[in-house]
Lab assay of single mutants.
Amino acid sequence: WIARINAAVRAYGLNYSTFINGLKKAGIELDRKILADMAVRDPQAFEQVVNKVKEALQV
């Protein structure tokens, strides 16, 4: 799951650890299995999560 998430978030200019930190700051409580599945099956929803994380990180 970690490898999938890392590959997906790198397309948005983040790395895995920064993304996970941003999830916590944004108050998003999705587990890694769901995030990895979302990255593959629903990229639009995953992009929305990434955008919320970037807002929380102020990137």
Score class of each variant (00 low, 15 high):
residue 26 A to W: 03
residue 10 R to M: 10
residue 7 A to F: 06
residue 48 Q to I: 14
residue 15 N to C: 08
residue 40 V to L: 08
residue 10 R to Q: 11
residue 4 R to G: 03
residue 59 V to S: 15
residue 2 I to M: 04
residue 48 Q to P: 02
residue 51 N to I: 14
residue 38 M to E: 02
residue 6 N to D: 15
residue 4 R to F: 10
residue 18 T to K: 12
residue 4 R to P: 02
residue 39 A to D: 04
residue 6 N to M: 05
residue 48 Q to K: 13
residue 52 K to I: 11
residue 40 V to I: 11
residue 44 Q to I: 14
residue 34 I to W: 14
residue 38 M to G: 02
residue 38 M to C: 07
residue 35 L to A: 05
residue 31 D to N: 13
residue 58 Q to I: 13
residue 7 A to N: 12
residue 19 F to N: 00
residue 46 F to W: 10
residue 8 A to D: 01
residue 50 V to F: 02
residue 55 E to Q: 13
residue 19 F to I: 01
residue 34 I to C: 12
residue 4 R to M: 15
residue 25 K to M: 10
residue 25 K to N: 07
residue 58 Q to R: 14
residue 5 I to A: 01
residue 41 R to H: 12
residue 55 E to R: 10
residue 26 A to C: 05
residue 34 I to P: 05
residue 44 Q to R: 11
residue 32 R to P: 15
residue 20 I to T: 09
residue 1 W to V: 15
residue 40 V to N: 09
residue 47 E to C: 05
residue 48 Q to R: 13
residue 42 D to C: 08
residue 38 M to W: 08
residue 34 I to M: 14
residue 50 V to Y: 02
residue 51 N to S: 10
residue 21 N to L: 14
residue 17 S to D: 11
residue 16 Y to S: 03
residue 6 N to C: 14
residue 49 V to H: 04
residue 28 I to M: 10
residue 32 R to F: 14
residue 23 L to T: 03
residue 28 I to R: 03
residue 37 D to L: 08
residue 56 A to H: 08
residue 20 I to R: 08
residue 14 L to N: 00
residue 46 F to P: 00
residue 57 L to G: 05
residue 18 T to I: 10
residue 27 G to I: 04
residue 25 K to T: 10
residue 34 I to Y: 15
residue 26 A to H: 02
residue 13 G to I: 01
residue 14 L to Y: 04
residue 47 E to N: 07
residue 52 K to H: 07
residue 4 R to D: 13
residue 49 V to C: 06
residue 39 A to V: 08
residue 12 Y to S: 02
residue 33 K to Y: 12
residue 44 Q to K: 14
residue 13 G to S: 04
residue 1 W to Q: 15
residue 12 Y to D: 01
residue 43 P to F: 06
residue 56 A to Y: 08
residue 8 A to R: 03
residue 34 I to G: 10
residue 36 A to K: 03
residue 45 A to Q: 12
residue 4 R to V: 15
residue 22 G to L: 03
residue 35 L to H: 02
residue 46 F to D: 00
residue 15 N to L: 05
residue 35 L to Y: 05
residue 20 I to C: 11
residue 48 Q to E: 08
residue 16 Y to M: 01
residue 30 L to I: 14
residue 6 N to A: 12
residue 32 R to S: 13
residue 47 E to H: 06
residue 18 T to Y: 04
residue 51 N to R: 09
residue 38 M to Y: 07
residue 8 A to E: 03
residue 25 K to S: 09
residue 33 K to T: 06
residue 42 D to V: 06
residue 21 N to Y: 12
residue 55 E to L: 11
residue 41 R to D: 14
residue 24 K to C: 10
residue 51 N to T: 12
residue 30 L to Q: 11
residue 48 Q to M: 07
residue 14 L to W: 04
residue 54 K to Q: 12
residue 5 I to P: 00
residue 4 R to Y: 05
residue 44 Q to H: 12
residue 7 A to W: 06
residue 40 V to D: 15
residue 2 I to H: 02
residue 43 P to S: 04
residue 5 I to W: 01
residue 5 I to L: 13
residue 47 E to D: 06
residue 56 A to N: 07
residue 44 Q to L: 11
residue 26 A to V: 09
residue 31 D to V: 11
